[in-house]
Design a binder for these strands. Structure first.
Lengths: 251, 251
DNA sequence: CGTAATTTGTGAACGCATTCACAAGCGCGT
DNA sequence: ACGCGCTTGTGAATGCGTTCACAAATTACG
Protein backbone atom coordinates (compact mmCIF):
# COMPACT_ATOMS: atom_id res chain seq x y z
CA UNK A 1 0.00 0.00 0.00
CA UNK A 2 1.75 0.39 1.32
CA UNK A 3 0.63 1.60 1.60
CA UNK A 4 0.15 3.97 2.63
CA UNK A 5 -0.55 4.47 -0.97
CA UNK A 6 0.52 8.00 -0.44
CA UNK A 7 1.52 10.94 -2.50
CA UNK A 8 5.15 10.62 -3.36
CA UNK A 9 7.59 12.21 -5.71
CA UNK A 10 11.02 10.92 -4.86
CA UNK A 11 12.69 9.79 -8.01
CA UNK A 12 9.78 10.75 -10.19
CA UNK A 13 11.94 12.98 -12.34
CA UNK A 14 14.02 10.06 -13.52
CA UNK A 15 13.87 10.15 -17.28
CA UNK A 16 14.16 7.15 -19.60
CA UNK A 17 17.84 8.01 -20.04
CA UNK A 18 18.26 6.18 -23.30
CA UNK A 19 21.80 6.22 -24.58
CA UNK A 20 22.66 6.31 -28.24
CA UNK A 21 24.04 2.81 -27.93
CA UNK A 22 20.88 1.48 -26.37
CA UNK A 23 22.66 0.69 -23.13
CA UNK A 24 21.26 2.30 -20.02
CA UNK A 25 23.56 2.22 -17.05
CA UNK A 26 22.36 2.79 -13.51
CA UNK A 27 23.76 6.29 -13.55
CA UNK A 28 22.66 7.27 -10.06
CA UNK A 29 23.78 4.10 -8.35
CA UNK A 30 22.09 0.81 -7.59
CA UNK A 31 18.83 2.50 -6.42
CA UNK A 32 19.96 1.94 -2.88
CA UNK A 33 16.77 1.34 -0.92
CA UNK A 34 13.31 0.62 -2.39
CA UNK A 35 10.48 2.86 -1.27
CA UNK A 36 8.51 0.02 0.21
CA UNK A 37 11.48 -0.90 2.34
CA UNK A 38 12.03 2.62 3.63
CA UNK A 39 8.45 2.73 4.79
CA UNK A 40 9.08 -0.27 7.00
CA UNK A 41 12.44 0.78 8.40
CA UNK A 42 10.78 3.10 10.87
CA UNK A 43 8.79 0.21 12.27
CA UNK A 44 11.85 -1.97 12.59
CA UNK A 45 13.66 0.83 14.37
CA UNK A 46 10.86 1.28 16.86
CA UNK A 47 10.59 -2.42 17.64
CA UNK A 48 14.36 -2.73 17.96
CA UNK A 49 14.57 0.27 20.26
CA UNK A 50 12.13 -1.38 22.62
CA UNK A 51 14.14 -4.60 22.54
CA UNK A 52 17.30 -2.67 23.24
CA UNK A 53 15.73 -0.95 26.21
CA UNK A 54 14.64 -4.29 27.57
CA UNK A 55 18.18 -5.62 27.29
CA UNK A 56 17.90 -7.93 24.31
CA UNK A 57 21.15 -7.86 22.42
CA UNK A 58 20.63 -10.38 19.65
CA UNK A 59 17.57 -11.09 17.58
CA UNK A 60 16.84 -13.43 14.68
CA UNK A 61 14.98 -12.39 11.58
CA UNK A 62 12.08 -14.61 12.61
CA UNK A 63 11.72 -12.92 15.98
CA UNK A 64 12.11 -9.42 14.65
CA UNK A 65 9.76 -10.08 11.77
CA UNK A 66 7.11 -11.40 14.13
CA UNK A 67 7.45 -8.35 16.34
CA UNK A 68 7.17 -6.04 13.37
CA UNK A 69 4.29 -7.92 11.83
CA UNK A 70 5.97 -8.89 8.57
CA UNK A 71 7.29 -11.96 6.80
CA UNK A 72 10.82 -12.89 7.85
CA UNK A 73 12.05 -13.21 4.28
CA UNK A 74 10.89 -9.68 3.63
CA UNK A 75 12.63 -8.43 6.73
CA UNK A 76 15.90 -10.02 5.67
CA UNK A 77 15.63 -8.60 2.20
CA UNK A 78 14.85 -5.18 3.61
CA UNK A 79 17.87 -5.23 5.86
CA UNK A 80 20.07 -6.58 3.11
CA UNK A 81 19.49 -3.34 1.22
CA UNK A 82 21.33 -1.50 3.99
CA UNK A 83 24.28 -3.85 3.85
CA UNK A 84 25.15 -7.05 5.62
CA UNK A 85 24.66 -6.53 9.33
CA UNK A 86 23.57 -9.96 10.47
CA UNK A 87 25.61 -12.97 11.44
CA UNK A 88 24.62 -16.30 9.92
CA UNK A 89 23.67 -18.87 12.48
CA UNK A 90 23.23 -16.15 15.10
CA UNK A 91 21.05 -13.22 14.09
CA UNK A 92 21.34 -9.45 14.29
CA UNK A 93 23.01 -7.42 17.02
CA UNK A 94 20.21 -5.21 18.29
CA UNK A 95 22.28 -2.21 19.29
CA UNK A 96 24.25 -2.21 16.06
CA UNK A 97 21.14 -2.49 13.98
CA UNK A 98 19.46 0.35 15.86
CA UNK A 99 22.43 2.55 15.11
CA UNK A 100 22.47 1.68 11.45
CA UNK A 101 18.75 2.20 11.02
CA UNK A 102 18.87 5.54 12.78
CA UNK A 103 21.78 6.54 10.61
CA UNK A 104 20.05 5.38 7.44
CA UNK A 105 16.94 7.33 8.31
CA UNK A 106 19.01 10.44 8.84
CA UNK A 107 18.28 10.68 12.54
CA UNK A 108 21.84 11.37 13.54
CA UNK A 109 20.84 14.83 14.61
CA UNK A 110 17.39 15.85 15.80
CA UNK A 111 15.80 17.42 12.77
CA UNK A 112 14.06 20.74 13.22
CA UNK A 113 10.39 20.63 12.26
CA UNK A 114 8.04 23.55 11.70
CA UNK A 115 4.36 23.08 12.40
CA UNK A 116 1.99 25.26 10.41
CA UNK A 117 -1.52 25.56 11.79
CA UNK A 118 -2.06 25.35 15.52
CA UNK A 119 -5.73 24.47 15.58
CA UNK A 120 -7.35 21.38 16.90
CA UNK A 121 -4.98 18.90 15.34
CA UNK A 122 -1.94 21.16 15.33
CA UNK A 123 -2.02 21.57 19.09
CA UNK A 124 -2.15 17.82 19.54
CA UNK A 125 0.79 17.34 17.20
CA UNK A 126 2.74 20.03 19.02
CA UNK A 127 2.30 18.07 22.22
CA UNK A 128 2.91 14.62 20.79
CA UNK A 129 5.79 13.16 22.76
CA UNK A 130 6.58 10.62 20.05
CA UNK A 131 8.26 13.19 17.87
CA UNK A 132 10.87 14.15 20.41
CA UNK A 133 11.70 10.60 21.35
CA UNK A 134 12.08 9.48 17.77
CA UNK A 135 14.43 12.00 16.33
CA UNK A 136 12.58 15.24 15.80
CA UNK A 137 12.35 18.61 17.47
CA UNK A 138 9.45 20.91 16.86
CA UNK A 139 11.30 24.16 16.40
CA UNK A 140 8.53 26.53 15.41
CA UNK A 141 4.77 26.98 15.48
CA UNK A 142 3.04 29.20 12.96
CA UNK A 143 -0.58 30.23 12.51
CA UNK A 144 -2.61 32.83 10.67
CA UNK A 145 -5.20 33.43 13.39
CA UNK A 146 -4.37 36.62 15.35
CA UNK A 147 -6.02 35.11 18.42
CA UNK A 148 -3.52 32.29 18.46
CA UNK A 149 -0.43 34.21 17.43
CA UNK A 150 1.61 35.16 20.47
CA UNK A 151 0.24 32.47 22.73
CA UNK A 152 2.58 29.94 24.29
CA UNK A 153 2.29 26.25 23.56
CA UNK A 154 4.65 23.63 24.88
CA UNK A 155 7.34 26.17 25.49
CA UNK A 156 7.08 27.78 22.07
CA UNK A 157 5.47 31.04 21.08
CA UNK A 158 3.07 30.80 18.18
CA UNK A 159 4.36 33.11 15.46
CA UNK A 160 2.51 34.78 12.65
CA UNK A 161 2.41 33.04 9.30
CA UNK A 162 4.03 36.10 7.75
CA UNK A 163 7.23 35.07 9.46
CA UNK A 164 7.32 31.73 7.68
CA UNK A 165 10.25 32.45 5.42
CA UNK A 166 12.28 33.99 8.23
CA UNK A 167 11.61 31.07 10.53
CA UNK A 168 12.58 28.47 7.95
CA UNK A 169 15.86 30.30 7.54
CA UNK A 170 16.71 30.97 11.16
CA UNK A 171 15.61 27.64 12.56
CA UNK A 172 17.18 25.57 9.82
CA UNK A 173 13.88 23.85 9.16
CA UNK A 174 14.26 20.64 7.23
CA UNK A 175 10.70 19.32 7.42
CA UNK A 176 7.38 21.14 7.69
CA UNK A 177 4.07 19.78 8.94
CA UNK A 178 0.91 21.32 7.53
CA UNK A 179 -2.06 21.14 9.88
CA UNK A 180 -4.04 24.05 8.50
CA UNK A 181 -7.56 23.94 7.07
CA UNK A 182 -7.63 22.56 3.54
CA UNK A 183 -8.27 26.00 2.12
CA UNK A 184 -4.94 27.34 3.31
CA UNK A 185 -2.77 24.31 2.66
CA UNK A 186 -1.78 24.95 -0.93
CA UNK A 187 -0.63 28.49 -0.29
CA UNK A 188 1.38 27.38 2.71
CA UNK A 189 2.96 24.63 0.64
CA UNK A 190 3.87 27.10 -2.08
CA UNK A 191 5.57 29.37 0.40
CA UNK A 192 7.38 26.51 2.09
CA UNK A 193 8.68 25.27 -1.22
CA UNK A 194 9.78 28.76 -2.20
CA UNK A 195 11.55 29.12 1.13
CA UNK A 196 13.55 25.99 0.41
CA UNK A 197 11.75 23.35 2.44
CA UNK A 198 11.90 20.04 0.60
CA UNK A 199 9.86 17.74 2.86
CA UNK A 200 6.24 18.23 3.85
CA UNK A 201 3.90 16.12 5.92
CA UNK A 202 0.38 17.18 5.02
CA UNK A 203 -2.60 16.65 7.32
CA UNK A 204 -4.92 18.91 5.37
CA UNK A 205 -7.38 16.98 3.21
CA UNK A 206 -6.16 18.38 -0.10
CA UNK A 207 -3.90 17.29 -2.89
CA UNK A 208 -0.84 19.53 -2.83
CA UNK A 209 0.90 20.57 -6.01
CA UNK A 210 4.61 21.06 -5.40
CA UNK A 211 7.84 21.10 -7.39
CA UNK A 212 9.53 17.78 -8.08
CA UNK A 213 12.20 18.65 -5.58
CA UNK A 214 9.73 18.60 -2.71
CA UNK A 215 8.74 15.35 -1.06
CA UNK A 216 5.18 15.23 0.23
CA UNK A 217 3.52 12.63 2.40
CA UNK A 218 -0.07 12.96 3.38
CA UNK A 219 -2.16 11.68 6.25
CA UNK A 220 -5.88 11.81 5.60
CA UNK A 221 -7.68 10.76 8.74
CA UNK A 222 -11.16 10.52 7.28
CA UNK A 223 -9.82 8.59 4.30
CA UNK A 224 -8.38 5.98 6.62
CA UNK A 225 -11.78 5.45 8.14
CA UNK A 226 -13.38 5.27 4.73
CA UNK A 227 -11.00 2.53 3.69
CA UNK A 228 -11.95 0.57 6.78
CA UNK A 229 -15.57 1.28 6.05
CA UNK A 230 -15.24 -0.25 2.61
CA UNK A 231 -14.00 -3.50 4.04
CA UNK A 232 -16.68 -3.48 6.70
CA UNK A 233 -19.33 -3.28 4.06
CA UNK A 234 -17.64 -6.05 2.13
CA UNK A 235 -17.78 -8.33 5.13
CA UNK A 236 -21.43 -7.52 5.71
CA UNK A 237 -22.52 -8.77 2.31
CA UNK A 238 -20.74 -12.03 1.45
CA UNK A 239 -21.00 -11.87 -2.34
CA UNK A 240 -23.77 -9.55 -3.47
CA UNK A 241 -22.37 -7.32 -6.17
CA UNK A 242 -25.51 -6.07 -7.84
CA UNK A 243 -27.52 -5.05 -4.81
CA UNK A 244 -26.87 -1.41 -5.53
CA UNK A 245 -29.31 -1.04 -8.41
CA UNK A 246 -32.18 1.01 -7.04
CA UNK A 247 -30.79 4.09 -5.40
CA UNK A 248 -31.95 7.69 -5.68
CA UNK A 249 -29.68 10.65 -6.19
CA UNK A 250 -29.91 12.17 -2.72
CA UNK A 251 -26.45 12.69 -1.35
CA UNK B 1 5.13 5.06 -0.91
CA UNK B 2 3.63 4.36 -0.22
CA UNK B 3 1.40 2.67 -0.18
CA UNK B 4 1.16 4.09 2.81
CA UNK B 5 2.52 0.68 3.32
CA UNK B 6 0.16 -0.05 6.11
CA UNK B 7 -0.76 -3.02 8.18
CA UNK B 8 -3.57 -4.85 6.47
CA UNK B 9 -5.24 -8.17 6.79
CA UNK B 10 -8.14 -8.10 4.40
CA UNK B 11 -8.18 -11.26 2.39
CA UNK B 12 -5.13 -12.66 4.09
CA UNK B 13 -6.92 -15.87 5.02
CA UNK B 14 -7.34 -16.87 1.40
CA UNK B 15 -5.78 -20.28 1.07
CA UNK B 16 -4.21 -21.74 -2.09
CA UNK B 17 -7.49 -23.56 -2.71
CA UNK B 18 -6.00 -26.16 -4.99
CA UNK B 19 -8.56 -28.49 -6.45
CA UNK B 20 -7.90 -32.14 -7.17
CA UNK B 21 -8.07 -31.40 -10.85
CA UNK B 22 -5.54 -28.62 -10.66
CA UNK B 23 -8.13 -26.05 -11.63
CA UNK B 24 -8.60 -23.21 -9.20
CA UNK B 25 -11.71 -21.17 -9.75
CA UNK B 26 -12.17 -17.71 -8.28
CA UNK B 27 -14.45 -19.08 -5.62
CA UNK B 28 -15.12 -15.80 -3.87
CA UNK B 29 -15.79 -13.77 -6.99
CA UNK B 30 -13.58 -11.71 -9.28
CA UNK B 31 -11.75 -10.02 -6.38
CA UNK B 32 -13.94 -7.00 -6.89
CA UNK B 33 -11.72 -4.05 -6.02
CA UNK B 34 -7.92 -4.12 -5.57
CA UNK B 35 -6.58 -2.76 -2.31
CA UNK B 36 -4.55 -0.09 -4.01
CA UNK B 37 -7.68 1.17 -5.72
CA UNK B 38 -9.72 1.31 -2.53
CA UNK B 39 -7.07 3.44 -0.94
CA UNK B 40 -7.53 6.01 -3.69
CA UNK B 41 -11.32 6.03 -3.81
CA UNK B 42 -11.51 8.21 -0.74
CA UNK B 43 -9.41 10.84 -2.48
CA UNK B 44 -11.56 10.72 -5.60
CA UNK B 45 -14.67 11.10 -3.47
CA UNK B 46 -13.29 14.13 -1.70
CA UNK B 47 -12.24 15.84 -4.91
CA UNK B 48 -15.56 15.06 -6.57
CA UNK B 49 -17.53 16.37 -3.61
CA UNK B 50 -15.77 19.68 -3.93
CA UNK B 51 -16.52 19.78 -7.64
CA UNK B 52 -20.14 18.96 -6.96
CA UNK B 53 -20.40 21.77 -4.43
CA UNK B 54 -18.97 24.18 -6.95
CA UNK B 55 -21.53 23.16 -9.52
CA UNK B 56 -19.47 21.07 -11.90
CA UNK B 57 -21.61 18.29 -13.27
CA UNK B 58 -19.36 16.53 -15.74
CA UNK B 59 -15.69 15.76 -15.52
CA UNK B 60 -13.24 13.92 -17.75
CA UNK B 61 -10.74 11.40 -16.48
CA UNK B 62 -7.93 13.79 -17.32
CA UNK B 63 -9.41 16.58 -15.24
CA UNK B 64 -10.30 14.38 -12.31
CA UNK B 65 -6.96 12.63 -12.39
CA UNK B 66 -5.14 15.95 -12.34
CA UNK B 67 -7.20 17.12 -9.37
CA UNK B 68 -6.54 13.90 -7.52
CA UNK B 69 -2.86 13.86 -8.36
CA UNK B 70 -2.80 10.59 -10.28
CA UNK B 71 -2.34 9.30 -13.82
CA UNK B 72 -5.55 9.40 -15.86
CA UNK B 73 -5.18 5.80 -17.03
CA UNK B 74 -5.01 4.71 -13.43
CA UNK B 75 -8.07 6.70 -12.56
CA UNK B 76 -10.05 5.09 -15.36
CA UNK B 77 -8.91 1.64 -14.36
CA UNK B 78 -9.80 2.34 -10.75
CA UNK B 79 -13.28 3.49 -11.65
CA UNK B 80 -13.75 0.60 -14.06
CA UNK B 81 -13.52 -1.74 -11.08
CA UNK B 82 -16.73 -0.24 -9.75
CA UNK B 83 -18.55 -0.72 -13.00
CA UNK B 84 -18.99 1.42 -16.05
CA UNK B 85 -20.13 4.84 -14.97
CA UNK B 86 -18.58 7.08 -17.57
CA UNK B 87 -19.80 8.06 -21.01
CA UNK B 88 -17.34 7.78 -23.87
CA UNK B 89 -16.70 11.05 -25.58
CA UNK B 90 -18.14 12.93 -22.60
CA UNK B 91 -16.77 12.00 -19.21
CA UNK B 92 -18.22 11.18 -15.82
CA UNK B 93 -21.35 12.65 -14.22
CA UNK B 94 -20.03 14.15 -11.00
CA UNK B 95 -23.14 13.67 -8.90
CA UNK B 96 -23.64 10.09 -10.01
CA UNK B 97 -20.04 9.23 -9.35
CA UNK B 98 -20.15 10.78 -5.91
CA UNK B 99 -23.14 8.62 -5.07
CA UNK B 100 -21.52 5.46 -6.33
CA UNK B 101 -18.27 6.10 -4.54
CA UNK B 102 -20.05 6.85 -1.28
CA UNK B 103 -22.08 3.70 -1.72
CA UNK B 104 -19.02 1.62 -2.52
CA UNK B 105 -17.23 2.91 0.54
CA UNK B 106 -20.19 1.98 2.69
CA UNK B 107 -21.01 5.53 3.63
CA UNK B 108 -24.73 5.21 3.06
CA UNK B 109 -25.32 5.59 6.75
CA UNK B 110 -23.08 7.52 9.10
CA UNK B 111 -21.01 4.85 10.78
CA UNK B 112 -20.67 4.96 14.54
CA UNK B 113 -17.07 5.25 15.69
CA UNK B 114 -15.70 4.74 19.18
CA UNK B 115 -12.59 6.62 20.21
CA UNK B 116 -10.44 4.98 22.86
CA UNK B 117 -7.99 7.25 24.61
CA UNK B 118 -8.82 10.88 25.08
CA UNK B 119 -5.38 12.29 25.66
CA UNK B 120 -3.49 14.76 23.58
CA UNK B 121 -4.23 13.23 20.23
CA UNK B 122 -7.59 11.73 21.16
CA UNK B 123 -9.04 15.11 22.02
CA UNK B 124 -7.96 16.49 18.68
CA UNK B 125 -9.51 13.57 16.86
CA UNK B 126 -12.73 13.98 18.83
CA UNK B 127 -12.92 17.53 17.59
CA UNK B 128 -11.87 16.89 14.02
CA UNK B 129 -14.69 18.17 11.85
CA UNK B 130 -13.61 16.10 8.86
CA UNK B 131 -15.03 12.92 10.33
CA UNK B 132 -18.57 14.19 10.54
CA UNK B 133 -18.58 15.70 7.09
CA UNK B 134 -17.20 12.58 5.49
CA UNK B 135 -19.50 9.90 6.75
CA UNK B 136 -18.65 9.18 10.35
CA UNK B 137 -20.11 9.95 13.75
CA UNK B 138 -18.04 9.70 16.87
CA UNK B 139 -20.48 7.91 19.10
CA UNK B 140 -18.43 7.24 22.21
CA UNK B 141 -15.31 8.36 24.02
CA UNK B 142 -13.51 6.02 26.39
CA UNK B 143 -10.51 6.46 28.64
CA UNK B 144 -8.82 4.75 31.56
CA UNK B 145 -7.75 7.90 33.41
CA UNK B 146 -10.16 8.65 36.30
CA UNK B 147 -9.42 12.35 35.90
CA UNK B 148 -10.76 12.32 32.39
CA UNK B 149 -13.68 9.93 32.85
CA UNK B 150 -16.87 11.86 33.36
CA UNK B 151 -15.70 15.04 31.67
CA UNK B 152 -17.56 16.37 28.66
CA UNK B 153 -15.91 16.72 25.28
CA UNK B 154 -17.67 17.87 22.15
CA UNK B 155 -21.05 16.97 23.56
CA UNK B 156 -20.02 13.52 24.71
CA UNK B 157 -19.25 12.28 28.19
CA UNK B 158 -15.98 10.40 28.50
CA UNK B 159 -16.80 6.96 29.80
CA UNK B 160 -14.64 4.51 31.70
CA UNK B 161 -12.76 1.90 29.73
CA UNK B 162 -14.54 -0.79 31.72
CA UNK B 163 -17.68 0.07 29.80
CA UNK B 164 -16.06 -0.76 26.47
CA UNK B 165 -18.00 -3.92 25.75
CA UNK B 166 -21.29 -2.35 26.77
CA UNK B 167 -20.67 0.72 24.61
CA UNK B 168 -19.76 -1.32 21.54
CA UNK B 169 -23.03 -3.15 21.92
CA UNK B 170 -25.35 -0.25 22.70
CA UNK B 171 -23.89 2.20 20.21
CA UNK B 172 -23.58 -0.30 17.38
CA UNK B 173 -19.94 0.55 16.97
CA UNK B 174 -18.56 -0.55 13.63
CA UNK B 175 -15.12 1.04 13.77
CA UNK B 176 -12.87 1.85 16.71
CA UNK B 177 -10.04 4.36 16.85
CA UNK B 178 -7.20 3.65 19.29
CA UNK B 179 -5.43 6.77 20.52
CA UNK B 180 -4.07 5.39 23.76
CA UNK B 181 -0.43 5.16 24.80
CA UNK B 182 1.38 2.29 23.12
CA UNK B 183 1.43 0.33 26.35
CA UNK B 184 -2.36 0.08 26.48
CA UNK B 185 -3.10 -0.44 22.80
CA UNK B 186 -2.81 -4.21 22.57
CA UNK B 187 -5.13 -4.84 25.48
CA UNK B 188 -7.68 -2.43 24.09
CA UNK B 189 -7.44 -4.13 20.70
CA UNK B 190 -7.98 -7.52 22.30
CA UNK B 191 -11.09 -6.32 24.07
CA UNK B 192 -12.44 -4.62 20.97
CA UNK B 193 -11.96 -7.76 18.92
CA UNK B 194 -13.62 -9.86 21.60
CA UNK B 195 -16.51 -7.42 21.68
CA UNK B 196 -17.04 -7.92 17.96
CA UNK B 197 -15.40 -4.84 16.47
CA UNK B 198 -13.83 -5.76 13.14
CA UNK B 199 -12.19 -2.51 12.07
CA UNK B 200 -9.55 -0.61 13.99
CA UNK B 201 -7.63 2.54 13.18
CA UNK B 202 -4.53 2.53 15.36
CA UNK B 203 -2.62 5.68 16.27
CA UNK B 204 -0.55 4.04 18.99
CA UNK B 205 2.99 3.28 17.85
CA UNK B 206 2.73 -0.47 18.28
CA UNK B 207 2.12 -3.45 16.07
CA UNK B 208 -1.25 -4.89 17.00
CA UNK B 209 -1.91 -8.61 16.92
CA UNK B 210 -5.53 -9.28 16.07
CA UNK B 211 -7.62 -12.13 14.64
CA UNK B 212 -7.84 -12.46 10.86
CA UNK B 213 -11.38 -11.18 10.99
CA UNK B 214 -10.26 -7.78 12.22
CA UNK B 215 -9.02 -5.16 9.80
CA UNK B 216 -6.34 -2.86 11.19
CA UNK B 217 -4.90 0.29 9.69
CA UNK B 218 -2.22 2.20 11.46
CA UNK B 219 -1.10 5.79 11.41
CA UNK B 220 2.36 6.31 12.84
CA UNK B 221 3.08 10.01 12.94
CA UNK B 222 6.75 9.80 13.84
CA UNK B 223 7.29 7.11 11.20
CA UNK B 224 5.97 9.46 8.54
CA UNK B 225 8.54 12.04 9.53
CA UNK B 226 11.28 9.43 9.55
CA UNK B 227 10.43 8.43 6.01
CA UNK B 228 10.70 12.05 4.94
CA UNK B 229 13.93 12.32 6.87
CA UNK B 230 15.40 9.42 4.92
CA UNK B 231 14.75 11.16 1.63
CA UNK B 232 16.10 14.42 2.98
CA UNK B 233 19.35 12.75 3.85
CA UNK B 234 19.45 11.15 0.42
CA UNK B 235 19.17 14.52 -1.25
CA UNK B 236 21.86 15.99 0.96
CA UNK B 237 24.51 13.49 -0.15
CA UNK B 238 24.29 12.97 -3.92
CA UNK B 239 25.91 9.55 -4.15
CA UNK B 240 27.99 8.80 -1.10
CA UNK B 241 27.16 5.29 0.00
CA UNK B 242 30.15 4.36 2.09
CA UNK B 243 30.44 7.49 4.21
CA UNK B 244 29.03 5.66 7.21
CA UNK B 245 32.15 3.70 8.03
CA UNK B 246 33.55 5.29 11.14
CA UNK B 247 30.80 5.57 13.71
CA UNK B 248 30.91 4.80 17.39
CA UNK B 249 28.21 2.87 19.24
CA UNK B 250 26.67 5.80 21.11
CA UNK B 251 22.93 5.89 20.50
C1' DC C 1 -26.34 10.54 -42.89
C1' DG C 2 -21.51 10.45 -42.55
C1' DT C 3 -17.30 11.94 -40.77
C1' DA C 4 -14.33 14.05 -37.31
C1' DA C 5 -13.31 14.89 -32.61
C1' DT C 6 -13.51 13.17 -28.01
C1' DT C 7 -13.06 10.24 -24.21
C1' DT C 8 -13.91 5.88 -21.96
C1' DG C 9 -12.72 1.04 -20.98
C1' DT C 10 -9.34 -2.49 -21.29
C1' DG C 11 -5.83 -6.00 -23.12
C1' DA C 12 -1.01 -6.16 -22.96
C1' DA C 13 3.48 -4.76 -21.48
C1' DC C 14 6.18 -3.39 -17.94
C1' DG C 15 8.16 -2.84 -13.42
C1' DC C 16 8.23 -3.24 -8.57
C1' DA C 17 7.35 -5.87 -4.33
C1' DT C 18 6.81 -10.15 -1.97
C1' DT C 19 7.59 -14.82 -1.19
C1' DC C 20 9.96 -19.10 -1.89
C1' DA C 21 13.66 -22.04 -1.31
C1' DC C 22 18.28 -23.04 -0.72
C1' DA C 23 23.37 -22.32 -0.77
C1' DA C 24 26.72 -20.03 2.09
C1' DG C 25 28.47 -18.95 6.48
C1' DC C 26 28.91 -19.23 11.44
C1' DG C 27 29.17 -21.22 16.23
C1' DC C 28 29.13 -25.02 19.18
C1' DG C 29 29.95 -29.47 20.88
C1' DT C 30 32.62 -33.33 20.72
C1' DA D 1 39.44 -30.57 13.59
C1' DC D 2 35.25 -31.71 12.04
C1' DG D 3 30.52 -32.16 11.49
C1' DC D 4 25.91 -30.59 12.84
C1' DG D 5 22.39 -27.29 13.47
C1' DC D 6 20.97 -22.83 12.90
C1' DT D 7 20.29 -18.41 10.44
C1' DT D 8 21.43 -15.09 7.03
C1' DG D 9 21.55 -13.42 2.31
C1' DT D 10 19.89 -13.88 -2.25
C1' DG D 11 18.59 -15.80 -7.05
C1' DA D 12 14.38 -17.21 -8.96
C1' DA D 13 9.46 -17.38 -9.15
C1' DT D 14 5.33 -15.31 -8.41
C1' DG D 15 1.95 -11.77 -7.87
C1' DC D 16 0.24 -7.16 -7.92
C1' DG D 17 -0.02 -2.46 -9.55
C1' DT D 18 0.85 0.98 -13.04
C1' DT D 19 1.26 2.61 -17.54
C1' DC D 20 0.74 2.25 -22.44
C1' DA D 21 -1.83 2.32 -26.42
C1' DC D 22 -5.79 1.56 -28.96
C1' DA D 23 -10.54 -0.14 -30.17
C1' DA D 24 -15.20 1.02 -28.98
C1' DA D 25 -18.62 4.30 -28.03
C1' DT D 26 -20.54 8.69 -28.10
C1' DT D 27 -21.37 13.55 -29.48
C1' DA D 28 -20.87 17.50 -32.68
C1' DC D 29 -21.32 19.22 -36.97
C1' DG D 30 -21.50 19.76 -41.82
Amino acid sequence: MTGQPHGRKHLAARRPAVGLTGMDLPVVGPKAVPDATVARLATYLRVLSVMDDVGVDTVSSDELAAAAGVNSAMLRKDLSHLGSYGVRGVGYAVRTLVDHLASTLGLGVHRAVALIGVGNLGQALAGYAGFGSRGFRIAALLDADPNRVGTMLRGLTVRDISELEAVVESEQISIAVIATPASAAQEVADRLAAAGVTAILNFAPTVLAVPDTVDVRKVDLAAELQILSFHEQRKARPAAAEVRAAEGGAR
